[in-house]
Simulated assay, not measured.
Amino acid sequence: MHGPTMSGWLLVALCGVTSAYCLLRMRSGPREERGVARGEALMGLGMAVMAVPAAVFAPPRWSGAVYVVVFGAAALRALWWARAGAGGPHHSTGAGSSHHVHHLIGSAAMVYMAVAMAAPGGGHTGHGAGAQAGGVPLLTGALLVYYAVYVLWVGARLLPVPAAASASGGTVSWGSRPELALACRLSMALGMLTMLLTL
């Protein structure tokens, strides 16, 4: 039981810190990045709450419905902006429709995990060491492959990013650093991989 509890707390810490940084980006980052940061903050917070070990806090039965409503709405919003394509917000920062598709997949994965946890025998990180696997293996496998590829892709993009500096030669605020935004996305994708593996 100690292993799943420890991994659950590590996920809570990782996703909580990531969510807090995304909130900082939302307040101090470039205007066109704030909507992206808002979505990432919601995702990080949801993942942190979902990863809390059951030995500490057993979620009430209705918590799955809350996840479905919140992340279902986030998925619909991401779908709306993904369909808008380049005309949607954040198109000038490279966070266009592909980033909205990623948010759509992430929100749908959160809905999927919430439904799988609510099903009889469902379980996830820290929610019972002997819990049986939940969800549809083929869908879980597809999400695992997607997030594994995404982790490699973001990791490759993160390596060559130089320290950011403003055009005037000064330093850039913490909310505007592109390498930290990429690290934030990488950590959330790793957290999602971990949660899907323990589903």
Rank of each mutant, 00 (worst) to 15 (best):
Y112Q: 01
H99W: 08
A129S: 13
V145C: 03
V115I: 14
G94W: 09
V145W: 05
H100C: 06
L104S: 00
P137A: 10
M110P: 01
G96S: 12
L79W: 15
V101Q: 05
G94A: 01
L152E: 13
V111T: 00
A156P: 07
G130V: 03
G106M: 11
H100Y: 12
H91C: 09
L152P: 13
A129Q: 10
G106H: 04
T140I: 12
V145Q: 10
Y112W: 05
V145G: 09
A164F: 06
T125K: 05
G122F: 01
A108R: 04
H103N: 06
G141E: 09
A142W: 05
G88I: 04
A133T: 12
G134L: 02
H124W: 15
L139Y: 10
A164N: 07
A84Q: 07
A133R: 07
L138T: 10
G126C: 02
V101Y: 02
V115E: 06
A84C: 08
P160I: 13
L138C: 14
G141R: 04
V151S: 02
P160M: 06
A129F: 03
L138W: 15
H127V: 05
S97Y: 07
P160T: 09
V145D: 03
A131I: 12
T140M: 09
G94N: 01
A163E: 14
G123R: 02
S107L: 06
M117A: 12
G121P: 00
G128S: 03
W153E: 12
V101M: 02
G135Q: 01
V154I: 15
M110G: 04
H127Y: 00
T140E: 07
Y146D: 04
A133S: 14
I105M: 05
L139V: 12
P137H: 14
Y112G: 00
P160E: 10
G96A: 05
A109W: 04
P137G: 09
A156G: 12
G155W: 03
P120S: 08
A118L: 01
G122W: 03
A109M: 11
T125P: 00
G85Y: 07
H102P: 03
T125F: 01
H100W: 13
L79K: 05
